[in-house]
Nucleic acid binder design. Sequence first.
DNA 1: TGATATGATGTAACCGGTTACAGATAAAGG
DNA 2: CCTTTATCTGTAACCGGTTACATCATATCA
Lengths: 329, 329
Amino acid sequence: MNIREIAKKADVSIATVSRVLNNSENVSFVTREKVLETLKRYEFKMDPWAKRLASKRTVTKVFIMISKRIMKQLNSKTGEFYSKVMEGIKNSAKANRTMIETVEMESNLDEDKLKNVNGVLLIGGDTTAEHVRFFKKIGMPLVLVDQYIPTVKVDCVVSNGYDGASYAVKYLLSQHIRKIVHIHGFLNHFGFKDRYSGYVAVMEQIGLLPKSYEYNDDIMEDMKPLVDKMLSVYGVPGAIFASNDSIAMKVIETLEDFHIKIPEDVSVIGFDGTEVGKNFIPSLTTLKVPMREMGSLALKRLLDIVYDQDVYPVRISLFTEFMKRGSSI
Amino acid sequence: MNIREIAKKADVSIATVSRVLNNSENVSFVTREKVLETLKRYEFKMDPWAKRLASKRTVTKVFIMISKRIMKQLNSKTGEFYSKVMEGIKNSAKANRTMIETVEMESNLDEDKLKNVNGVLLIGGDTTAEHVRFFKKIGMPLVLVDQYIPTVKVDCVVSNGYDGASYAVKYLLSQHIRKIVHIHGFLNHFGFKDRYSGYVAVMEQIGLLPKSYEYNDDIMEDMKPLVDKMLSVYGVPGAIFASNDSIAMKVIETLEDFHIKIPEDVSVIGFDGTEVGKNFIPSLTTLKVPMREMGSLALKRLLDIVYDQDVYPVRISLFTEFMKRGSSI
DNA sequence: TGATATGATGTAACCGGTTACAGATAAAGG
DNA sequence: CCTTTATCTGTAACCGGTTACATCATATCA
């Protein structure tokens, strides 16, 4: 049952049916009721591909919301991850006649600003359940990028940190390293939590005691106190698994200050697979996350939600790839 | 740059360009080369929606592969899960002009049978890396349903067992139950493994010793020995978390044979949210998996892979929903 | 050499929607 | 009562592909 058949049944033109379907203004009350009734009676189901194809004639507008904290990093070395994600979003937007506008997550949005916005992408680990609820309440299509909130049913695109971390730890174990420390960021960021869980799961499965330290990358503080504490309490570990490349590089720099050699004394593994990590000396062993794909997939998914009806919310996880390089044996 | 512009540049008709794009037979060598060169030069990118819309004029053929083991269950009480998944697949197929054919996973497929097959859905936890490699080698579009294999990059649709299980355990803890046993199926089935991991993670986080038993539902054996062993070694637990509804119901029946009352003596929680579980006495507390959605999403994803170019393989996880019912306090 | 089969290519209809534009009708204003 | 304006509705072009069918050149064969 397509729009033309509905039009015939309701004795109106296809344009009118389309107008009703899109809540267009200029339809009289009686006509609208008549069409709605017909749509329901014949269980009309919109063809998503036809809609998407036809919709190319209009521009779609999407808000990209990023926390101040991440926005600040965006052009620095530590900001490579989200820069690449943004690249992916922009590519996908260009290919889909979509206008994107970057907005600070902290700014409060009145209805006016959101009037002609078709959907929203919430970027990064600072996204909270509150943010999600705000947009869900007003029925705004929504996708979280690099964040997952178990308690809220909402679409998101993340990397598979659990398996990535598990792989890293198993690799180290296969190299006969058993004293493995995990240094991670805030665990309310799902990315960090997920990697942490993968690390802990493998360690405990093998019967080893997980040993982890949280590093607050917000304050950009010196890492010396943390490493100092680790060394004095725990001794020199065989390996350090850091929850991202930035942290891994900081760890390496700090360890070298302590005259500890990488990878001879300690193997260090990062996460993300950034360019800076690759060009770092020593070149960083890491788990590569397809950052551009994360961005483009997220935008694609958002457009699916905007244009297709009854999409069921899902979590989309991207595979990571282990990159053995110079910072580990 | 669309197909018409390419046609103009290459000085051929749009039909010819389409033929080249679809590796149709009837194109002369020189024309094909000319068109291919033009496509490359202008970086032609197919519009997936136009393709999908136009493709409605053809039927797509998809193989649904199920292991003998699951096939046998399909019409029994224990087979509700995959029956519902199949329903979802069929619905989606009907809406997408797709012909599906159910095939035993164990049957060996010669090239002939796969000649006009556009894609394959591999159903259930019996799918192995071998199966995947076979289809990947011949470039066959592929989606796993209710199975995930960390070592192979391939699309799959699964339920989020980790969070579901975590939720169940946390719920029990909130009811002041601390002696929680997990009874699960084969852990090479990702669904069971994932739920197991969620259970273990929460237990260990709280500092409790995880206690789990594997139940082989293949042999359809009596559960008495297993329960007997559990009771003698471990005593009567406060709760049992089973890795699916079928196991949960068997556990309840067996416990009742031991004159243990549900939920007064022991709370039992299942997983899946089947109808039989709902109608069971006592009605089963469980985590509901959107089974039909799992099926329809998998087929949708498969068609995406068949028709859109460069889709990046992902794991799609579905949310579960906790259903508090009579088998638990 | 003329009839017929074969292969390559083009034309136009079609997939199912959206929307610019035109036309009709009714209300408001002079 | 005629003109202007606002509101509603319909027609047809368009989004970017696929494919049935027609056409035409060439090869095959009696």
